[in-house]
């Protein structure tokens, strides 16, 4: 994939993610351990280490429209395994928040069928909506 990003935009997106996550994107040296341990990797269209790289490059649209940030289940495995101490779980959350703070839902309560509402544990619905709706 060929993407062209103006320098100013590149810096802004990365800085915003850094601000929201509190993490230093420059710390990542692309070893891939985060992706190796990620339970959702097989379902993702951009691996966790690639998310780090794309943010570094300022590819806002690619990251915010990826399936990956919504497949991430905040399990903290990447964070546990990163040799550089990057909290990638927070970086994923920052990306989701950048999407949601444009006042849009990725998944809204109306999308849960009545039958499922009766069966699903409360924690499942609350956590899903906390992560995926604005």
């Amino acid at each position: 994939m060929k993407i062209k990003i103006p320098l100013e935009k590149k810096t802004k997106f990365r800085e915003k993610i850094e601000e929201l996550s509190g993490e230093n994107l420059f710390a990542c040296y692309q070893c891939g351990r985060c992706s190796g341990g990620c339970p959702g990797a097989s379902q993702m269209d951009m691996l966790p280490n690639q998310v780090m790289r794309y943010i570094y490059l300022g590819a806002e649209e690619e990251v915010l429209n990826s399936k990956t940030i919504w497949v991430c289940a905040s399990c903290y495995m990447c964070t546990q395994r990163c040799p550089k101490g990057v909290n990638l779980t927070k970086v994923m959350e920052a990306a989701r928040q950048m999407y949601l703070r444009k006042n849009q839902d990725y998944f809204s309560p109306d999308n849960i069928p009545q039958k499922d509402r009766e069966e699903l544990p409360t924690i499942a619905m609350v956590s899903c909506l906390r992560k995926m709706s604005s």
Partner: peptide, 18 residues
Amino acid sequence: ECCMSYLTVNHKDIVAER
């Protein structure tokens, strides 16, 4: 390892495979 957690709400298939 993770069971894929709250994805059970919007992605039953991913959780079922897990």
